[in-house]
Structures are given as C-alpha cells and as structure tokens.
C-alpha cells in the first residue's frame, strides 16, 4: 500500500512536470525552434503586441505551413512583437490565452483546439482592452466577443470536390468515403456534400468510415474493402494522408488508380507532395484548404489600428480544387504546402 502511494505520488509529480514543460507559452515555444518570446524587448517601441495561439506545427503539413505563415508575417520588420504558443489541448491553450491577457498584449490570434468554453476568457480579454481575432477555426462564443474570424469554408470545399466528381461522368459511383476525426470542422464540412449524393442515390456508399486523419487507418479500411471483393471506383479521402494510405492499399493489392487507372483518388489539403501525385497522374483530385490567413489578419489589424473595423465577422479564404488532368508544375510550387 505504502509502495503504491509512493508510486502514485511520483507519477502525479512527473505527469505534472511533463505537462508543465509543454503548457505555459514561454516553455512551449521552446520546442518550436523559431519562436521569439525571449528575443522580444520588454517595452515595445511602437510595435503592436500580438499573442498567437495555434496548434503545434508537427500536427500536419497544413499546420506546419500555417505556423510558418504566421511566423513570417508577424515580424518586427512588419511592426509586430509576436509571442507564440502551441498546443493541441484546450486547457493549455486557455492557460496561454490567460498568460497573454496578463502580459497585456494588444491582440490575441487564436486557432482553437476546441470549439466550446472560450466565452469567459474572451470577456476578460475584452475588458482588458485586448482584441481577439480567430483564424482557421471557429469557436462557439458570441461573435460580439471577437473582431473577426478568418476561416476556410469546409462545406464549400466538399461541394467543390463533389461537383468535380459529378463532372467526371463516371458510369457508376461506388465510393469509399474515408472521413477525418469525427466532429471536426473539416470532417463535417467535407462529409456533408458527399452525404447529400449518397442520400439522393446518385452515388453508392461502399463504405463510410473514419480514418482519423491517419494514413495507416485509411489503408486498413481500403484493404478490408478490397479483401471483401466489394467493387468500388472512387476513394474520397478527407485529407492527403488518408488518400496516400488508400493509394498504398491499392498498390499493395495490384489495383490501378489515378488518371488512367480503375480507381479515382481524391484528397484534401494540397500538400506539395500530394499535388506532385496529381501531376504524376497517380491521383485525380486534391481540394485546397488554405493555411495562409496571416496576410488577411495582418490587414485587419492594420485597419483596426486606424479605427476601421472589418466589414464582416467571418472572412472566408479563397480556395480551389485541382484536377490531375489540368494541374501544372507551377501550381504545385505555388499552392503546394511544405
């Protein structure tokens, strides 16, 4: 019993210690190399102080590009003194948020890990005169609490992709639908358009499963369909990684895919390597999900500094879809992430 207690005590100690090392903004910036908390001088000379809360760059190619975009935009040369905090966890993001409020920044830019639970923190920040801008992800808080949100319209991404698929005029549509993490914005948006086709009977749902954004899970899902000998000719994967996992399952089973292949492969996010697959004709379609919100937010902040509020609360990034038949090497370099 005594031993157990000691072990438990040690465990909580280490867990809290391990959690500490990644929680507060100052420490968490240490695992992401180019953060600039310690580099910034204590008193800003005309610089706008911003606290940027994002998900960690290792999450995905999308996130890596997103983080880089913000780091490159919010520089001292551009008139900002930026602090960065990265976490996938709501509690840690909230802690960073409160820290930024205590530090007295001018703006907080937030890509929330969770939709709910921000109201109170936003109110406190507003009372302290701190303006909040959301990017990449919406939160459930009342929109009077933040200045603007720069986001992707995931539902539109889904519609663009499904419209493209319909335009292919395939004799039949037997679709393997690999979803993202259930309940995430991207999953809900990208699923909706396809679900509509399933419901209308225009397309046949061979299987609809979540691959949790992971290539390995997507591969297993497709393998199961192949081994069950169910016919299919379209794979609609809600991100590039899962499309890649699906393609791998096809390769392993000796099923051709891509422009001249038996199976149409569709992905999302436009990682550079994914667009390269398109260019090589191994995939058919990739939908863009733009991670480049920093410039837009930069513009909004500059306007706000001059007293102009943004015209609308929700600003939607412009996004397109790429077809393997029409994509060019230039597109790969311009739009590819990473």
């Amino acid at each position: 019993m005594k031993k157990l207690l000691i072990v438990l005590a040690a465990m909580t100690l280490v867990v809290s210690f391990a959690a500490c090392t990644s929680a507060p903004p100052a420490a968490s910036s240490a695992d992401s190399p180019p953060a600039s908390v310690e580099a910034a001088p204590p008193e800003s000379d005309g610089l706008i102080k911003v606290g940027i809360i994002n998900n960690p760059p290792e999450e995905s190619g999308y996130r890596a590009a997103n983080v880089k975009d913000f780091q490159e935009t919010f520089t001292e040369d551009n008139g900002y003194k930026a602090s960065f905090a990265y976490s996938l966890k709501f509690e840690e993001q909230l802690a960073s948020f409160n820290q930024f409020v205590a530090d007295g920044v001018d703006y907080i830019l937030l890509s929330a890990a969770a939709t709910d639970g921000w109201d109170a923190a936003f109110k406190t920040a507003n009372e302290a005169g701190i303006k909040i801008l959301l990017f990449d992800r919406m939160v459930s808080a009342d929109e009077s609490l933040y200045e603007a949100a720069v986001v992707s319209d995931m539902a539109q991404e889904g519609i663009t992709a499904v419209d493209w698929l319909k335009a292919q005029n395939l004799a039949e549509y037997n679709v393997i639908h690999i979803q993202g993490v259930m309940g995430s914005d991207a999953q809900i948006g990208r699923t909706a358009a396809l679900d509509k086709e399933f419901a209308a009977g225009a397309m046949t749902k061979v299987v609809q499963q979540t691959g949790n954004w992971s290539d390995a899970e997507a591969k297993t899902i497709v393998e199961a369909v192949i081994n069950a000998k169910t016919p299919f000719n379209v794979i609609y994967a809600e991100n590039d990684n899962m499309a890649q996992g699906a393609a791998q399952a096809l390769d392993a089973a000796g099923i051709t895919h891509g422009v001249d292949g038996d199976v149409v492969i569709m992905g999302f996010d436009c990682n550079k390597w994914a667009l390269q697959e398109l260019l090589d004709g191994n995939w058919n379609y990739d939908g863009q999900c733009s991670p480049f919100q920093a410039k837009v937010i930069d513009g909004i902040i500059k306007d706000l500094q001059n007293g102009t509020a943004p015209a609308q609360k929700k600003i939607i990034s412009e996004e397109k879809g790429f077809d393997a038949k029409t994509i060019t090497a230039d597109d790969v370099n311009t739009y590819g992430l990473g």
Binding site: E58, E59, L88, N212, D215, N241, W273
Partner: peptide, 8 residues
C-alpha cells in the same frame, strides 16, 4: 508513406 506525420 515516403513521408511522416509526426503527430499520428
């Protein structure tokens, strides 16, 4: 995968 997703 010829690539890696560090978080997954």
């Amino acid at each position: 995968m010829s690539t890696i997703n560090y978080s997954s």
